[in-house]
Design a protein around this nucleic acid. Structure first.
Lengths: 333, 333
DNA sequence: TCCTGGCGCTGAAACGTTTCACCACGCTCC
DNA sequence: GGAGCGTGGTGAAACGTTTCAGCGCCAGGA
């Protein structure tokens, strides 16, 4: 068995309480004693048992973060932001990947609650989760990431997708485009629908009729392969669009590939805009214009709100933070 | 405070031990009693305190996984493989991202040891880590991922990079290329050096002189932007290479961008090969030939070895697993 | 001289589980 | 009808910490 605080106490010739003090409040212990204890710790290779510590303390200094998909750079950056702030404020982060499966999300929520994490940051797979509601009911602070639920009273951090669509649309219109294709995933996904709404608003603001100026190409998934195939088909039909706005950089990359493989010049024959500004957007064959979301800030902000709620539950009031995305213009437009 | 097993016992009118049995060995308790207890649990919203459970049990059913960089698809897939197998075998996984920083790695090792994880999977930042050695010395099983350390006796899972280089080189030579550029990161990185060694071996096997047939372009980092700039420079010098093998898909993408932007046709003017077969390789403007590493299998295999060592420490014997990479031919060669 | 207060340390209780020896009961079998 | 046994349940000990009341000691003020 691993040595316990007791073994250290015996070896250093002090009481258990003193060892604990050395560990947690070193300044409360006389220097000579402290050195003895530290020597004993080093000799025995003692490592504190955090289960015991947490059991006794009744509360932990850790937060749970459940993301939809760690492969997605968006969530990766959010996680980084969360970790930064949490570490800074003295909290540890337990990172979980629900992979968009409700069962996995539920399992992780259960584990986190059993571990008595202090709070949870989550992008839920579905709009409402019984387990999540229960967790909240039992008093664990919760922050929604990239979501907002008007039903429940809690903090949330999201990005304004309508504004993002407007940004992209405004840019394309300003470049003189009058017929714009919108490549998108299922419009049941809020983000896809919001960005379309923004695009239409921008077109309308320019005095055009959204119904004729915007051609929606709805695809079954946000994958490059799918937009590649769809784009070739659209090109066949010799449509008169001069620009395409994609709900996602992956779709844009697929579109770019279709353009290159059919000999179209970008942006002269067709301008292409993506969304998310993933790492590869800047390094694509033709560097991609895109809409950047402040992912790091989302994570930092969410973690900040959660820690505030954990540390000062009395003075805390719930907030719905909404970030504005940013236009990134490169060679593809 | 959250309700404890004791509150449940009182409410259900049974003893504490019985509640514990319902939780851990439901078949050992009569159905009527079990139902009463379950009802009490539901009414009180009881959630087991895993700190207490683990403290008493003395050991946990969880593994630690420390990766270098979660943004890297390689590690993301490895993590997925680890999670799959661990879950299947009844272990939970604590995911940690060292971000290539020794201090972060050390901190996570400390936390994992305090949590008394059963075993650790790690890709260490540096070849030797005092903290890691100490962990092993104290009896925590350890598996090295994508590394091998001849100094210490433990399991490891890696990929044969020399074989990968040979695969790529052999393919390019077979396509008739006689002058091949090797775009690489610092050759102090073992993977980069091994792949070069494989490339040279393939060239030699084809009866060519590696010193004249292979032109090494060593770059300071494995980033697309850097290879883009380097490639433009190389193109300026009107070098006679007809193919380029890149130590990394990112470098290959940068090279592809340089080719496209200078009007070169791929693969007719220059053939390009990457390494890693990241998701974007298949969807690049010209789909990229690459060398695929069996990432999922690496994770699964590593987790399998670790769990075996944890569950059967007596019969377990350490193994060094070496996977072979696989050639993926697409349009860029 | 006595009192006060601060410092440094001790010892024991408490946190919420799991486990295990033990008990009560009813049944079967000679 | 008693021995033996299986079933279902009890109660207390133990896990390794943290915390806190309290104790002995010494310095300084009255």
């Amino acid at each position: 068995m691993a040595p316990s605080i007791k073994d250290v106490a015996v070896r250093a010739g002090v009481s258990i309480g003193t060892v604990s003090n050395v560990l947690n409040r070193p300044d409360k212990v006389a220097e000579a004693t402290r050195d003895q204890v530290l020597a004993a710790i080093a000799e025995l290779g003692f490592v504190r048992n955090s289960s015991a510590a947490q059991l006794r303390a009744g509360t932990s200094r850790s937060l749970g973060l459940i993301v939809l998909d760690m492969a997605n750079p968006f969530f990766h950056d959010v996680a980084k932001g969360v970790e930064d702030i949490a570490t800074e404020l003295g909290y540890a982060v337990v990172l979980c990947n629900s992979d968009e499966q409700v069962t996995r999300e539920d399992r992780y929520l259960q584990v986190l609650e059993e571990q008595r994490v202090r709070g949870v940051l989550i992008t839920p797979v579905e709009v409402s989760s019984e387990r999540l509601d229960a967790l909240r009911r039992r008093g664990t602070p919760t922050v929604l990431v990239d979501r907002h639920d008007p039903r429940v009273d809690c903090c949330s951090v999201a990005v304004d997708d309508v504004a993002g669509g407007e940004l992209a649309g405004g840019h394309l219109v300003a470049k003189g485009h009058r017929r714009i294709a919108y490549f998108t995933g299922p419009l049941t996904i809020r983000q896809c629908a919001d960005r379309l709404q923004g695009l239409r608003a921008a077109v309308r603001d320019a005095g055009l009729d959204p119904d004729t100026a915007v051609e929606v190409v709805e695809l079954p998934a946000l994958k490059a392969r799918i937009s590649y195939e769809a784009a070739r088909e659209v090109f066949e039909r010799a449509v008169d669009v001069t620009a395409a706005f994609c709900a996602n950089d992956l779709l844009a990359l697929g579109l770019l590939r279709a353009a290159v493989s059919t000999g179209r010049r970008v942006p002269d024959d067709i301008a292409i805009m993506g969304y998310d500004d993933i790492e590869f957007a800047a390094d694509a064959a033709v560097p991609l214009s895109s809409v950047r979301q402040p992912t790091l800030h989302i994570g930092r902000s969410a973690a900040g709100l959660l820690v505030e709620e954990c540390d000062y539950p009395d003075t805390h009031s719930h907030q719905q933070v909404m970030f504005k995305p940013e236009l990134v213009v490169r060679e593809s437009t």
